[in-house]
Amino acid sequence: MHPAFSVIFLTTLIGAGQGLFLALFTGQLYSTIHLVEEQPGSFYAVGSALSLLLLIAGLGASFFHLGRPERAWRAAAMWRTSWLSREVIVLPAMMGIVFFYGLFHWAGWTEPFIVFGDGALPVDTTFVLGLLGVIVALALFVSTGMIYASVKFLEEWHSPYTVVNFMFLGTASGFMLAAAYSAWLGNNLVGFFGTWAVIATLLGLGTRTASLFRNASLKHQSTLQTAIGIRHRSIEQKSQGFSASSFNTREFFHHQSPATLKLVRNAFLVLVFPVPIALILLAYLLESPTLPIAAFALQYLGLLAERWYFFAEAEHPQNLYYQQIS
């Protein structure tokens, strides 16, 4: 597939946004049960604003993908069948929740209305919003992932890995961002978020490499033989039927050399996984306030490459029909 920057930014930005939200709420959860130090409301408010910003930026990027952005509202219509439609519904829901989550924290509307287990678990509105947010974030990860995973003949994508990769990598970058945010603020959650970021990154490493291995040995079901319905060992296209490009030659192919592909793959394998982990570890050891920021920045850069590769790697069967000009 042709890696469109709009979609690359959309998925990575909202992934980080969702992840950051998850991180914030994890922080809140831990602090509620006193496992980590309590943070002021502004920590959550600013964090949510950051998350919201990422979600908005992602949404903004997605508009560049649309031919007719002014009609984007129509995209909510087919939620019964279309994962894209579902994403279009869930994303604003997510944004709403993040907004209110941040607002409530900001305004300090955090009076618990119910307390469980002897004061161990005070539940306030932000907590409910947070829980809801987790569910919606997961739903958004699933929707986004399923947009790709549900297209069964895009076999590189058509696997649970696509969804979990989106989830783990988004989560990883979100926690990484939370660590960076904490480092920037100078609070003592860097280690907490950093540890979770490393865990999510390692999970992501597991599922992403698994998907790479899977795809490397993937045997495509469609061949020139099934594409034109002729059984013969040697079939070659001599003419695609037109001598310049077309939508079908532009949209479904990256037009890059295999070497470039490999380079990008290696780049993301380095930038998304070992580098940020190492930087976080180093930050932990050196108690550096800047290294976590670098860790996030490099991981995000790596994720851009990862997403680029995700598209480029997918072989659309339609390409069987568009190979040769003559």
């Binding site: 310049a244 000009i325 003559s326």
Partner: peptide, 10 residues
């Protein structure tokens, strides 16, 4: 011309 804007030697 979109069908044959240029040619090759077969």
């Amino acid at each position: 011309r979109q069908i044959h804007s240029h040619n090759y030697l077969f």
